[in-house]
């Protein structure tokens, strides 16, 4: 097996870190870090992002694996929802007798 050539100048890849603050809550993006592989990324995420019990679970994902919406398309993607007020319960005026529906 030939080993791919390496150099100390080569940067470790970038990982995005997600932390679940406590059981029952979603993982939330909290930052990024460089690590050689996933196992090391989890280890480093613990040291960098959870020094004060900020979490009970960590996810890491290679930054290059994330596909994001284009900020340039923001208006086209999200603004059309702005005039769809009928999608919200508060759009409907009901008799006071049904106050809590």
């Amino acid at each position: 097996m030939t080993m791919p050539s390496t150099s100390t100048q080569a940067e470790w890849p970038l990982w995005e870190v997600f932390v679940r603050p406590k059981a029952g809550l979603d993982h939330k993006h909290c930052g990024s870090l460089h690590a050689a592989d996933a196992a090391l990324a989890v280890q480093l995420a613990r040291d960098v992002y959870t020094r004060r019990q900020e979490g009970v679970s960590v996810w890491v994902v290679r930054s290059s694996d994330i596909t994001a919406s284009d900020p340039g398309d923001k208006a086209m993607y999200f603004d059309p929802m702005a005039d769809k007020v009928y999608r919200h319960p508060t759009f409907y005026e009901l008799p006071a007798a049904l106050d809590h529906m």
């Binding site: 097996m1 390496t6 100390t8 470790w12 690590a35 050689a36 592989d37 090391l40």
Partner: peptide, 17 residues
């Protein structure tokens, strides 16, 4: 720290292979 960074990189490449 150069040898540590290098070793971790090589280990990761080896695991991937």
């Amino acid at each position: 720290g150069a040898w540590v960074r290098e070793a971790a990189t090589v280990h990761a490449q080896k695991q991937a292979l």
